Amino acid sequence: MKHSNYCYFNGDLVHFQDIHLHVTDLLFQRGYGVFDFFRCRNGSFPWLEDYTERLFTSLELSCIEVNLDREQFTSVIHSLQEKNGLTNGAFKVIVSGGYADNLESVSGPANIVILNVLWEKPPEETFAKGVNLIRDEYVRPNPEVKTLYYFNRLKLQKKLKEYNAIDVLYYTDTISEASRANLFFVKEGSVYTPVSNILKGITRKQVLSLFGDIKVEDIDAERLYDFDEIFLTSSSNDVTPVVSVEGQKIGKGTPGPVTREIQAAFRAQGW
C-alpha cells in the first residue's frame, strides 16, 4: 500500500515521514498494541460506527487507554480524509501500548497513528477464480481483540508461498477463523460460520444480516474437506471464494453457486 501525504499522530495531522516512535514503546518491546482497518469507498465510510466500536472494544479488552473518545475518533477520520482528498482509500489505525521507561510497564500515554493509504482493489481474478489457503493448528490469544501480534502467520510465510496461498485457516478440534478473515462454509446449500475463537468481523456481520438463515455454530475440523464451498469475508477482500486448502480441492475446486450469490448480494450494496 502507498501512503498518502498526511497521517494522524498523537493529536496532529502530520506528513508520513514525520511519524517517529521511540524504541521504548511497548509495541517494540512486548508486542503490546492493537489496530483496525477499514476503507473509504466513493467518499463514504460504510459501517464506520461498527469499526469504531470494534477498535474501542479491542482497546478496552487490552487495557490500553487513549485520549480520544468515539466521537473524536470519527471526527479525526473525516478530517484526515478531507485533508488527503482520497475518495477511495483505506485507513489503518495503530495504537501502541505507550512508552515504558523500564521496557516492561507503561509509563506514558498510548501512541496513536492513523495511516490513510491509497487503496488498490485486489485483481478481479481473485474474486472470479478463488484463492488458496493453508491450515495451522492454532487459536489466536484473545481472539476478540484485533491485536498487532501476528507472529504465527508470519512464521508461515514460506508455507504460504509454497501453496500460493493468501491466508492461514486456524483450527484445533474446531475451525475458528483465518489469520486475516472470517470463514464461511457451504454444504448442500446450507451456510455455516464458526462462533468460537474468532474476531467478529464487520464484513462477516454484513453477510449475516443479508442472509438470516446462516448457521452460526462450532464446526468440527474433521469436516473441512467435506464442504462443497468455502469463502472468506474481510474488509480488504470483501467476499472471496476459497478453492483449495493445502493443495486439496474444496468441492469442485471452483467458486460455487452459493458463494457467487452471496458475493453478488454484497456487491449490490454498492461496496
Results as ranks from 00 to 15, higher is better:
Ser190Ile: 12
Lys155Arg: 13
Leu103Pro: 02
Thr57Leu: 13
Glu246Thr: 10
Asn102Ala: 04
Thr240His: 04
Phe73Arg: 03
Ala128Val: 12
Leu154Pro: 00
Phe35Pro: 01
Arg267Lys: 15
Ile219Ser: 03
Gly201Val: 06
Ala100Met: 09
Val34Ala: 09
Val207Cys: 01
Ser236Lys: 10
Leu48Ile: 15
Gly247Cys: 13
Ser244Gln: 10
Ala165Asn: 07
Leu27His: 10
Ile134Arg: 02
Cys63Val: 15
Tyr225Trp: 09
Ile262Gly: 06
Pro122Leu: 06
Leu55Met: 04
Val139His: 07
His20Thr: 10
Ser236Cys: 07
Asp36Val: 08
Asp25Trp: 09
Gly253Ala: 08
Asn164Glu: 14
Glu188Val: 07
Ser234Trp: 10
Tyr32Arg: 10
Val106Met: 13
Thr193Pro: 05
Asp226Leu: 10
Gln269Lys: 15
Ile250Asp: 03
Pro46His: 03
Ser58Ala: 09
Gly43Gln: 03
Thr172Lys: 04
Lys161Ala: 15
Ala221Gly: 02
Tyr163Phe: 14
Ser96Val: 15
Asp25Pro: 04
Gly89Val: 04
Gln17Phe: 01
Gly212Leu: 13
Thr74Trp: 13
Pro194Phe: 00
Val95Arg: 01
Gly212Phe: 06
Asn111Met: 09
Asp50Arg: 10
Ala128Cys: 11
Phe56Cys: 11
Ser190Trp: 00
Lys205Ala: 08
Leu13Thr: 00
Thr87Leu: 15
Asn111Gln: 15
Glu246Trp: 01
Ala265Trp: 11
Val106Ile: 15
Pro143Asp: 05
Arg39Val: 04
Lys161Cys: 14
Gln157Gly: 09
Leu80Ile: 05
Glu60Gly: 01
Glu60Leu: 13
Leu61Gly: 06
Leu80Asp: 03
Thr87Asn: 15
Phe231Pro: 04
Val216Pro: 06
Val34Gln: 08
Thr24Gln: 14
Glu120Ala: 11
Val195Trp: 00
Val117Ala: 14
Tyr225Ile: 01
Asn182Gln: 09
Gln29Leu: 11
Ala100Phe: 08
Glu65Ala: 12
His3Cys: 10
Leu55Arg: 02
Asp220Leu: 05
Pro123Asp: 14
Glu104Asn: 14
Ser75Tyr: 14
Asp50Ile: 06
Ile214Glu: 04
Asp213His: 11
Pro109Val: 15
Thr203Gln: 06
Ser62Trp: 08
Lys200Asn: 13
Leu68Ala: 06
Val186Gln: 00
Lys92Trp: 09
Arg54Ser: 06
Asn5Glu: 14
Glu82Arg: 07
Cys40Lys: 10
Thr52Trp: 05
Arg30Thr: 02
Phe185Gln: 04
Val145Leu: 09
Leu103Gln: 13
Glu162Met: 10
Lys129Trp: 11
Gly33Phe: 08
Phe91Ile: 05
Trp119Cys: 00
Asn10Lys: 08
Leu148Tyr: 11
Val14Asp: 00
Asp101Cys: 11
Gly189Thr: 07
Lys2Asn: 14
Pro255Phe: 03
His22Met: 14
Gly189Glu: 05
Ala110Ile: 05
Ile134Ala: 03
Gln29Asn: 13
Thr254Pro: 02
Phe231Gln: 01
Val113Asp: 02
Thr174Met: 03
Arg135Val: 03
